[in-house]
């Protein structure tokens, strides 16, 4: 009976959480649809959440592209298909690694920042103060962050794609003597532009996940400083898990036809 109770409680908790996040996204979309947007705050958040994330995106995508190229280039040359390495790196970067890695590192940085900031605001009654002033915390706080990241994460993803391919090209040349021209030609032949766009569609979905989960966790903070820590950790872990799940689902939906 206790096990059944627990399963019931967890199931109810799951649907409660999913419903809360969906509500938050729907309410944000309503404000955006009615153009009730704080432009200056959105630009500030684009800088804080997006522009300030460029170094970690650069480092992760650079080294991922490099290691992917390192592992594949020598093997490919041995089998006489060194001219395919550029395609493999570009294909993987644009479709999977670029969008997902950018989202994961931004979830760790921006998602945590959102949850911690909102959590602190809950603890210090600032969220209640907004409501008491007749202002919606979703319009004032969530919408600017949502818009900012929906714009900035795809840009960071494009940046990650370029850096990853460039890093891969450099390592392919250094470790397996695959020329830069050969690498880029292979990349251009293998990777259709629509795949790059589909990768960007993924990054838009990931941006919504990061902001929605960070905001929901932060606004739901209970219990002082410990609660803020719990909300922040919960936001990062949940966002990253959802990014992986949605990445699979989106790959299945978006890339099913062209394999």
């Amino acid at each position: 009976m206790n096990v059944l109770d627990e399963v019931g409680r967890d199931t109810a908790g799951f649907f409660n959480y999913a419903g809360g996040v969906t509500n938050l996204v729907a309410e944000s979309a309503t404000f955006i649809g009615r153009f009730r947007i704080r432009v200056r705050e959105t630009l500030d958040q684009a800088y804080l959440l997006g522009v300030q994330s460029w170094t970690i995106v650069l480092l992760t995508s650079l080294f991922t592209g490099m290691v992917f190229s390192l592992e594949s280039a020598v093997q490919a040359v041995q089998y006489g298909v060194g001219n395919l390495v550029g395609g493999a790196v570009a294909f993987t970067s644009a479709r999977e690694l670029g969008p997902m890695l950018s989202a994961v590192v931004v979830a760790g940085r921006a998602g945590a920042a959102i949850a911690a900031e909102f959590g602190s605001m809950v603890v210090t009654e600032q969220i209640e103060a907004l409501q008491a002033l007749g202002l919606s915390p979703i319009r004032m706080l969530v919408v600017p962050r949502l818009l900012a990241l929906v714009i900035m994460l795809p840009l960071l993803t494009i940046f990650a794609d370029i850096i990853s391919i460039a890093g891969g090209a450099w390592i392919a040349q250094a470790s397996a003597h695959i020329s830069f021209e050969s690498f880029i030609t292979s990349a251009r032949q293998t990777l259709p532009f629509t795949d790059v766009l589909k990768g960007l569609i993924k990054s838009v979905v990931f941006a919504v996940i990061i902001v929605a989960i960070g905001s929901y966790q932060g606004l739901g903070t209970r219990g002082g400083a410990a609660g803020v820590g719990k909300a922040t950790t919960g936001a990062v872990v949940t966002s990253i898990i959802l990014i992986f799940i949605f990445n699979f689902a989106l790959s299945y939906i978006l890339f099913r036809q062209n394999g």
Binding site: T124, E125, Q126, E128, A129, Q131, A132, L133, G134
Partner: peptide
């Protein structure tokens, strides 16, 4: 709520 002012215990600025 716009018609009601609220001064919080710790101000909540």
């Amino acid at each position: 709520r716009q018609k009601i002012g609220f001064s919080f215990q710790f101000a909540a600025l």
